[in-house]
Amino acid sequence: MLALDIRNVNKSYPNFQLKNVSFQLEKGYIMGFIGANGAGKTTTIKSILNMTRMDSGEIHVFGKNMANHEFELKQEIGYAMGGAEFYTRCKVKALTDVIKKFYAHWDDETYRIYLRKFKLDENKRIAELSTGMKVKYSIAIALSHGAKLLILDEPTSGLDPVARDELLDIFQGLVADGEISILFSTHITSDLEKCADFITFIEDGQIVRSGEKEEFKESYLLLNGAATQLNQVKDRLISYKMNSFGFTGLILAGDYEHSWNMKAATPSLEEIMVYFAKKEDAYV
């Protein structure tokens, strides 16, 4: 079953465009949504939440069209944004009391469990919570209203390595029973190397590729060769960097030929992002 099904979403802004964005997230898995700042991650997420009107396209959550079942589906979607501040002078307890009224399936028992698990102090003000705690609080809220799809926009931004690792462990714990699915946007790709099952890569408003993480990485190769070999392969490279030892470039695995006799390795997510960004620069 698909937790999230995005089909051909288009949206034009004066100086930015989402072009035919499509990708699917299977229930019970973590999908990393990567792309440089301004590539369209947040716009896509806003489209999912019906916060922005699409020019065309459809978004289905658990098989239901978001446009027709927004109210019902929002009960099942939990949303957390890293670094977002709402009602910061308010106490955790007071904010929860207001929020829970909006959800038909709110469960106080679950809420208590997660407060304890995340060591959240209800009597603290939102402003007094650390960045990581704020994300945990959003997750506690989402789980208490029975969210089955978590949409996390840059949840790890601004976190120290310890807090980040802790949060990633929490995410993995959440999908462990296969009921909860997570869409996780980030530009910190190291977060995803371990915990993501699928990767969707957006670049300049278009989905470059969406797929299982290892397959995603293996669909590219990082080539190392001498400067003299560059001309031979230049046209096929997505982009390359020169250094005194020769060049390093990213290529689609399908475009690579063994006869070239160059060192080829599977790139990391970060390398893929970096070389795609370089491609953009080259056109400017």
């Binding site: 019970g28 898995y29 973590i30 462990d169 993995q172 462990a176 915990c195 099952d197 993480k213 290892e214």
Partner: peptide, 17 residues
């Protein structure tokens, strides 16, 4: 699979594969 993934803190698909 899912338990192993959580315990090893790696992704579910990785274990599956």
């Amino acid at each position: 699979i899912r338990q192993a993934a959580q315990e090893l803190s790696i992704s579910v698909i990785t274990v599956k594969k």
